[in-house]
């Protein structure tokens, strides 16, 4: 598995939200990833990026490619309060987003649900120190 790039996400950076997801989409497009896969990866990446902006104190997004198995992996590692109840967070419509986040149109409570739906591998762990989400996509 090769690390292609790593990006820093800044907490509360609402106005530049989606910047990293766009960058990752461009890279994968250049690598020839088909557009239907590209859209799925973009949805997952954007949702997770937004989650980090809204809920964490910041973190990193890492893009990996596993040529041998034809997979793209995204790792989202943040520091912050974590998710106390992951099962609850996976319920469609459940959200703890702030008023500020909602003003920007976020907080539908569909983030993790969308990510799981579009990905082929989904692994999330969380503690009071932060959240680690790994998602994989079969090419």
């Amino acid at each position: 598995m090769t690390l292609i790039d790593k990006y820093n996400v800044v907490a509360d950076s609402f106005t530049t939200a989606g910047k990293i997801s766009s960058k990752i989409k461009d890279i994968l497009k250049q690598l020839g990833v088909p557009s239907d896969k590209l859209r799925k990866i973009s949805v997952a990446c954007y949702e997770a990026e937004i989650n980090m902006i809204i809920h964490s104190d910041g973190g990193d997004i890492s893009l990996f490619i596993d040529d041998e198995n034809g997979m793209v992996y995204l790792h989202f590692d943040d520091v912050g309060p974590g998710i106390p109840d992951i099962e609850q967070a996976m319920v469609p419509g459940w959200s703890t987003a702030s008023e500020k986040a909602r003003e920007f149109g976020f907080g539908a409570g569909m983030g993790l649900v969308n990510i799981k739906r579009v990905s082929d591998n989904f692994d999330i762990t969380s503690s009071s120190e932060g959240t680690h989400l790994k998602v994989g996509f079969q090419l």
Partner: peptide
């Protein structure tokens, strides 16, 4: 009805 800058990223990612 949303017109803030975040709609652009969503529009582009969803094409």
């Amino acid at each position: 009805v949303q017109s803030h800058i975040n709609i652009i990223a969503v529009a582009l990612l969803k094409e």
